[in-house]
Amino acid sequence: MQELTQEEERFGFMTKQRDDLLSARQDLELTIKKIDETARAMFLETLDGIKRGFVQIFQRLFIGGDAQIRLTGSDDPLEAEIEILATPEGKSMKSITLLSGGEKTLTATALLFGIYLVKPAPFCVLDEIDAPLDDANVQRFCAMLRDFSSGTQFLVITHNKRTMEVADRLYGVTMERAGVSKVVSVKFS
């Protein structure tokens, strides 16, 4: 009899627990849905901004042409793959992986600066980004760097003379003794 009372109590307790869990699960599902929605909205908004910036800068760097960012593979933007397509003037639209080395770099740079337009960073390090670019492209790249430099600090590591010309100050790093770097300041302005 006593056992019966105990079990009845236990049953009541368990049932309550189960109900609690059920409502907790519902809450969690709701939360996940909300998170997904917010993330999706933010992602789409940012992607839109990046798209605009990317195309604008791409056309500037390539002097015309067209470029696109496309979501493929899934209807949910949070799960989809991001495909980058580029069409330099007079060529056919193709995936960025099929471009030449310099074009690739230029496209990627356009994308990065496109991101900068949406999410400006106060400080940016460019480590030998300009290496695969030809003179004309370097010149355009530098012009853009100049434009962006009003809002962003750039620390540029380069071997290119044109890029050096655009810099406000220049540091030379040498290694006179093995293993020990020496910095020489070459200030302009």
Binding site: L145, R146, S149, Q153, F154, L155, V156, I157, T158, H159, T163, M164, V166, A167, D168, R169, L170, Y171, G172, V173, T174, M175, V183, S185
Partner: peptide, 13 residues
């Protein structure tokens, strides 16, 4: 190293 606003270039071999 003074960095400051604008563009700072680091060059060298």
């Amino acid at each position: 190293l003074e960095i400051g606003a604008g563009i700072t270039a680091i060059v060298g071999p």
